[in-house]
Design a binder for these strands. Structure first.
Lengths: 130, 130
DNA sequence: CCGTATCCTACCAGATACTG
DNA sequence: CAGTATCTGGTAGGATACGG
């Protein structure tokens, strides 16, 4: 459990220090599904089912769990319309939108360079979990 | 196991598809320690011990394992000087340096915004693994 | 439609000991 | 110095069933 010192200016942000809040956040954000969720949540808000269909391979459990985590660190906002049947929308906060730019840059880099990495590599075995 | 079609132009890069090589690469790169290793490997090359000391909390086992993974996807290069005692240097490939820019952008964003996220949040409990 | 609640398992990753 | 090897517990995450 991290205790924030009363004098916040004393907290030096550094992802390489394991007791730094930045490390905690990095671990949350770099989670297997977090990057994909933040990436796909564009300016539009999305519903649970939409996210399930957009992100191949994610389970309902992991989707909910990751959405809750991202909500906790204030990257997304949950809107419950309180209707029957239920209608819930998820959207990025301003903080989330700001972070999304860096995440998208990474994802697009991977997509752009994947062939160069994979096709020139004789030993690579790509395991598809199903 | 992913099989690359003979006509590479047919492979559409998309991290959201679980059978896409891009997803495989994302999972490797977004691993808990990969981001930190690529971040800290600047233009300078670094030795095993240096990396251990720079990245708090990483174990020798995870360091070696992650370095091997990153070598496999051609983001880093391993230089064994074949001396006694051993001297091994790790450095980013050009591909790695290119990716590093996007990763650093994310890490620096996290460090820059961590106080806003953590201090305004009453419910957050930061668990420091030790 | 949007979840929660269990159960269960594979593998992630720490601890420890050993080596050229 | 730069690793391997082995053991082990914890947990991420899948499968399934149920509920407002």
């Amino acid at each position: 459990m991290f205790k924030m010192p009363s004098d916040k200016s004393k907290v030096i942000p550094n992802v390489f220090r394991e007791t730094c809040p930045a490390r905690y956040l990095l671990n949350k954000i770099s989670g297997k599904w977090s990057l994909l969720i933040v990436d796909i949540l564009n300016d539009k808000s999305m519903r649970n089912g939409e996210l399930m269909r957009s992100i191949e391979g994610i389970s309902q459990k992991m989707l909910t769990q990751t959405l809750r985590d991202l909500e906790e660190i204030r990257l997304i906002k949950r809107h419950d319309m309180k209707t029957v049947p239920p209608h819930v929308e998820y959207e990025l906060t301003d903080l989330g939108k700001s972070l999304r730019e860096t995440i998208c840059a990474m994802d697009r880099w991977i997509e752009h360079n994947m062939l160069e990495i994979v096709t020139n590599n004789k030993t690579i075995d790509i395991n598809i979990s199903h």
